[in-house]
Simulated assay, not measured.
Amino acid sequence: MEASQLSGNVKTAYDEFYKKHDEDWRMLGAKYKAQHIIEVCGGLQFKTVLEVGAGDGSILKYLSDAGFAPEYHAVEISDSGVEHIKNRHINGLASVQVFDGYKLPFADNSFDLIILSHVLEHVEHERLLLRELKRVARHFVIEVPIDYKTNVDKRIKHFLAYGHINVYTPTSLRYLLQTEGFDVKKDLTSIIAPEVTRFNTFVNQKKPANLFNQLKISAEYLVKKTLIGLIAGMGEKLANAYTVLCTKTDKQAEIF
């Protein structure tokens, strides 16, 4: 794999993205992503952790503060993202560097765990990246947003505005991982927490924070939680994000 695998406009876009940094919004989202990582890894301990596509380092900051592991490493395609990570002064951060989006600058089986959180939906050649992850680590936590819904093709402009070029359901992610030789050990579905919705609605979208809108957000969350608790399979249907803990096998995708 050569650096040319990553389109030049993609790197430029993400460099610009982190220059327009929104600390409060990104830290709020990272709070729940870190919680999901800790939950699916419950009962396991890792010494060395690599986050691939570490963004601005907000997830690693939460994990470090929670004492998740003693040693962290980060790679990110964006120069501005790398600078944000360095400036966070994350305890246990051993290295942070720019990478080309596909080739990881580490030896085989260098890490106990790789984290790939809300990255795969942005990746042009997702299977190439997954194969590189398998080379470098033993365990993997992968989380993606669940963007796929009926008529998703009518919202292409919306998802491209976030850089989402791949859309998943829990079953389609499992299919992708299993056909690339990953063994899913534990999974977690999640819906957006009310405080995240409130921030997005009242701060990002600048809608009025009146009583009606406040109650609507709380009610929609409660209805979803109730349906998930009552109806089997509803968690995957209503999920906003899907998190899996995987190990690797010796299997590789075989076509015919």
Rank of each mutant, 00 (worst) to 15 (best):
R155Y: 11
A13G: 04
A74F: 06
T169P: 01
G235M: 03
V75G: 09
I217N: 00
S218A: 13
S218P: 04
N200T: 14
F256K: 13
D187T: 10
S80Q: 08
L211Y: 05
P194L: 07
K20Q: 14
C41F: 05
A241I: 05
Q45V: 03
Y32P: 02
A137M: 12
K47C: 01
D100T: 04
A232I: 09
L176H: 06
K103P: 00
L116K: 11
V10F: 00
Y14A: 13
F199G: 08
T189D: 02
H84Y: 00
P170L: 00
L129R: 06
K206P: 01
R131S: 15
F202K: 00
G29R: 12
I217M: 02
A54F: 06
G43Q: 01
L120A: 00
L44P: 11
V40C: 03
D153K: 09
R127L: 12
E124P: 02
E71C: 04
K149H: 14
A74V: 15
F212M: 15
P170Y: 10
T171V: 12
L245K: 07
K185A: 10
Y148L: 13
A241K: 08
G8R: 10
S190R: 11
L177C: 09
K251Y: 01
L113E: 11
E124S: 05
V136G: 02
L93T: 08
T249I: 10
G55C: 01
K154L: 10
L28K: 14
L227Y: 00
D56V: 00
Q45N: 11
T243E: 06
I156R: 13
K47N: 13
A30Q: 09
D65V: 11
A241F: 07
N200D: 14
G233Q: 06
V119S: 04
Q97R: 09
K154D: 11
E236D: 06
R155H: 03
T189N: 10
I191G: 07
R198K: 14
F46T: 14
I146Q: 03
P105D: 09
F256A: 11
S80A: 05
Y175E: 07
L133F: 11
Y148E: 14
D65M: 15
E126L: 11
N9C: 03
Y72V: 09
A253M: 07
G8T: 13
G235H: 00
D112C: 12
V119W: 00
V152D: 05
V136E: 09
L50H: 10
I77Q: 06
